[in-house]
């Protein structure tokens, strides 16, 4: 069908795919951040939440595949479009190179994107598969039993008494390592830079932006990016600096005290 050809082979079509997949990913990282911020609540909350997600079964795999497809399409489009643009510049480059007004974030999208990709790979290995620090990986930690019913927005996620992975401790232990934390912070910083241009840019790509409200949009995006970065900074930041101590009685609390 023509529509698919237009989407996958034309410049604007591929830009559209990039914007839509970008939008999905923005939704994911935002939701993920909100979920992760539960680390600042009692351990049951995040453990129950994680358990709920793990328990989705095929649905979880559906979501994972969808996200994977989005990342794949996003990256594929980025690579193809970038290669074409390089070629379009021609063999000879300018003697004097000058930027007129492109935002700084927009100039380094490709670099920030690559770092984000590296981060995602590392992060999956770290928390989802558990390669770097096997001993702090959730399945290596003793499981915990929920003391209370866990609910979110009134929806029950897990009942008291369920035995679940100790994701709470895994995060604390993972971020206790300053190198890991710093890498997270840098990566999330670059992700924010990526989003700074990306969330503004996707409106242009989808044709929803014009001079009348571009200024307003830019401000909203800026606020969003700042909040996003601060939220992400808070988790490793608070753990590393000791501002947030693991709740008493958790494996993380025990291990961290033992390390000191």
């Amino acid at each position: 069908m023509n529509l698919f050809r237009n989407l996958f082979t034309s410049s604007i079509g591929r830009k559209f795919l990039m914007a839509v997949t970008g939008l999905v990913l923005v939704g994911f990282v935002t939701g993920h951040l909100v979920g992760n911020l539960q680390i600042f609540l009692p351990p049951d909350q995040i453990n129950g939440y994680a358990h709920f997600l793990q328990g989705l079964g095929p649905l979880l795999w559906g979501i994972r595949l969808f996200l994977l497809a989005c990342v794949a399409i996003h990256i594929w489009a980025a690579v193809v479009l970038t290669l074409e643009s390089r070629a379009a510049r021609g063999p000879e480059s300018y003697g004097v190179k000058k930027w007129l007004r492109a935002s700084v974030a927009s100039r380094y999208m490709r670099m920030s994107g690559v770092v984000v990709l590296a981060f995602i790979l590392y992060h999956l290995a770290h928390f989802t598969i558990g390669i770097p620090g096997d001993e702090s990986y959730k399945s290596a930690l003793p499981s915990v039993v929920l003391e209370n019913d866990v609910r979110e927005f009134g929806i029950p996620l897990a009942a008291a008494g369920t035995e679940v992975h100790d994701v709470y401790s895994m995060i604390f232990l993972g971020f206790a390592n300053p190198i890991v934390s710093l890498f997270y912070i840098v990566a999330v910083g670059l992700l924010t830079v990526h989003l700074w241009h990306g969330t503004d840019s996707l409106f242009q790509t989808l044709g929803w932006r014009n001079a009348r409200w571009a200024d307003g949009l830019r401000k909203v995006v800026a606020i969003y990016c700042i909040l996003y970065f601060l939220g992400n900074l808070a988790i490793p930041g608070a753990i590393l600096t000791g501002l947030e101590e693991p709740a008493a009685g958790t494996t993380a609390a025990a291990e961290l005290i033992a390390q000191r």
Binding site: S11, I12, R14, K15, F16, L81, E84, S85, R86, A87, A88, R89, W99, L100, R101, A102, S103, S106, R107, M109, H197, D200, S201, F203, Q204, T205, L206, G207, W208, R209, N210, A211
Partner: peptide, 26 residues
Amino acid sequence: GNCTNQYECSAACPKLISHDFIAKLN
């Protein structure tokens, strides 16, 4: 090449054509 919404074009345009028209084109 492919636009990445950098708005250098409209900054260099002698007639100050707005990049709103790129959004419209999309």
